[in-house]
Amino acid sequence: MSTLEIKDLHVSIDTEQGTKEILKGVSLTIRTGETHAIMGPNGSGKSTLASTIAGHPRYNVTSGTITLDGEDVLAMSVDHRARAGLFLAMQYPVEVPGVSMTNFLRTAKTALDGEAPKLRTWTKDVKAAMAQLRIDADFTQRNVNEGFSGGEKKRVEILQLELFKPKFAILDETDSGLDVDALKVVSEGVNRAHAEGNMGTLLITHYTRILRYIKPDFVHVFVDGQVVEEGGPELADRLEDEGYDRYATGAGAATIAAASAAAQA
């Protein structure tokens, strides 16, 4: 049983106009076996949260903490975080020219486990996982993400999720840009990984569509760098019907924040 705990996290980025605060005090606790959905309109800071957990250098944590089973995640390098058990399925997976998928997967697995995987079982595992995600076998010969379609890139992210077996998976808008068939395939992959019982999931999404296939235990609504409302799966249904309009910033924001504080109390 592991716990990923985010406490009062403030994050800013440097822009040409100066420093801009994106996360304004986010607190969140995820345990093994739980699926948390983070939903919110564009620009609300959802992806910033994902990237910050993974350690992307663009984001500066100005205050707050992230701990994994009590260990200070913010003090860890990017690779160290991954080895500690954090996995970020990226919204825009990067093409890495010249590095074949085979080489990449094996190198990563070796780094994560601290020893090279047994070649025979590893090859078999990769093949099987690829088949389940309906990824063509010849992808292993291709360079990492190079020339992959949007859907293929997302499936390859989930392939890594299944092969690397992290303690916590952060899925950053994995559903965006997927057609229904691909969405199902990807969701099944996440559910398989989840079903092994050793993983907590943070699912970041703009749409409720993916929540038909991946059932969240908790839903957090993100607006303007803060969680403005939290609840169970029923909150997602409500968002599907009503959209994010009722969280429109301005005069209403304070009211909502107060209401949400009251709800938490």
Binding site: A54, G55, H56, P57, S77, V78, D79, R81, A82, R83, F87, L88, M90, P93, V94, V96, P97, G98, V99, S100, N103, F104, T107, A108, A111, L112, N143, V144, Q160, F164
Partner: peptide, 28 residues
């Protein structure tokens, strides 16, 4: 940096990631 981040986010140490990319770059 983006290549580096992607590879490191998969647990690969910076030095190994750097080699992987340069090797790949020239291997073409």
């Amino acid at each position: 940096d983006q290549h580096l981040f992607y590879l490191m986010a998969r647990g690969i140490p910076e030095e190994v990631a750097r080699r992987l990319v340069v090797r790949g770059f020239l291997h073409e």
